[in-house]
Nucleic acid binder design. Structure first.
Lengths: 226, 226
DNA sequence: GTACATTTTGTACGGCGTACAGAAATAGGC
DNA sequence: GCCTATTTCTGTACGCCGTACAAAATGTAC
């Protein structure tokens, strides 16, 4: 160890870290939605000139990618790897965990869907899903297709859920959201859309954990042929 | 008809129509992605000053909403209402039609997911799905939940599909897209992600019609408890 | 101490959505 | 057939965005 790998670069020490930038970006995302998470906004929050951000990330797309990876990295896949737990339950727990992490930052899921999810964390998630589905007795090819179906369901659900809520303040409880939706649905003309008007109380609950798990169960039922 | 309802307003005649603006916006969306579909770009294409667009739409969000409705309006739901056709097949045909219409304009589905889909066309789609699922023997509440599950699947699939393709030129065939994806997957380190590396040929086909219908069948299987 | 690599800032460019005021064009009331 | 009210479109401008470029400040290695 004659060569000190660290402490090698010349120039002033950095005043920030990538993590601090990502944290600031997430805060802004939570407070003001996607439009608030601008490079200039991030820089202002961490107390630095706008272009200083480009020392840490080549462009804004890289920041977005890093946020996505950061969020995916927050879910500890090892927790859902206990083979003593039935595979269906492991998948359900993971799906619920993902929903919780991502709905905590509305607008974040839109960032994910904006570009390809090809980072290492996304890959690890894919790997984990295929591994778990392998335990279900599915062959390798079927497990792969099935894991993509699950990814579509999870991210599609969350994306639609946050989209339907628009810019609604984040602090509201699930019951409040449902009540607010139901109120909006009262404007549906029953003459033109009788089934929708009648189903308004159900449609209001589309953004609930119950609907999420209900749909997940149907998907899993379809996968296991039952 | 003594009262001419039309030809009533003062002021110069309009030089454009809402439709012309939407067509221009869709063209730009196809050619240059979401960023190209700017108000200024649209105005330039139809040969008008940027702010003239605001005569037809109150703001850009309204234009986006109109595009979404325009696209949804392109699918003629009546075609999928023939009760002589089994309900599963009707849903499958509709799902395929939606995918075709929306993947024809990559970036458009991101616009849909960006905000709530509460326009009349979206409502009509929901109504149609609930009606069709009613034919399957599901109760009203289950049919409502099931239709949302289908919407999540359809729009989630298309959103992920267009996202994974990034800014890939639109003209490429499905086979070319798959080949390109497979090439990219060869970079997956088999040591860290053995299952994913091995499943690369399957994962490459995630963006295919086959995967889309495969997943749809699984969802429908889950819905019918088989 | 000097040379060099690196971080941060100041400034600037082009593009965005859109607000505002004014000019041109058209309808209805007299 | 003028007058007035209303509407459409343009010119201009503001504040925001992402980011390129050059210079200043700061650190390491020789």
């Amino acid at each position: 160890m004659t060569t000190q790998a660290r402490r090698s670069k010349p120039g002033p020490r950095r005043t920030l870290t990538e993590g601090a930038i990502l944290d600031a970006a997430l805060d802004l995302l939570d407070e003001g939605g996607v439009k608030a998470a601008s490079v200039r906004g991030i820089a202002a929050r961490v107390g630095v000139a706008p272009n200083a951000v480009y020392t840490y990330f080549p462009d804004k797309a890289a920041v977005v990618k890093a946020i996505v990876e950061h969020l995916l990295g927050q879910v500890d896949l090892a927790v859902f790897s206990d083979r003593n737990v039935p595979w269906r339950q492991r998948i359900e727990s993971l799906a619920l965990e993902l929903r919780e992490r991502l709905t905590a930052h509305p607008g974040a899921v839109n960032l994910m869907i904006g570009g390809p999810m090809d980072g290492p964390r996304a890959l690890a998630l894919n790997e984990h899903l295929m591994e778990t589905l392998g335990d279900s007795g599915l062959g390798a090819a079927e497990a792969a297709r099935a894991s993509y179906l699950l990814i579509v369901y999870v991210f599609g659900s969350i994306a639609l859920e946050t989209a339907e809520q628009g810019d609604q303040t984040r602090g509201t409880s699930e019951d409040e959201k449902i009540a607010s939706r139901l109120k909006g649905f009262s404007a549906i003309p029953a003459a033109s859309y009788p089934l929708s008007a009648a189903a308004a109380p159900i449609m209001a609950t589309y953004v609930s954990t119950r609907q999420y798990t209900w749909g997940l169960h149907k998907v899993l039922d379809g996968l296991t042929g039952e």
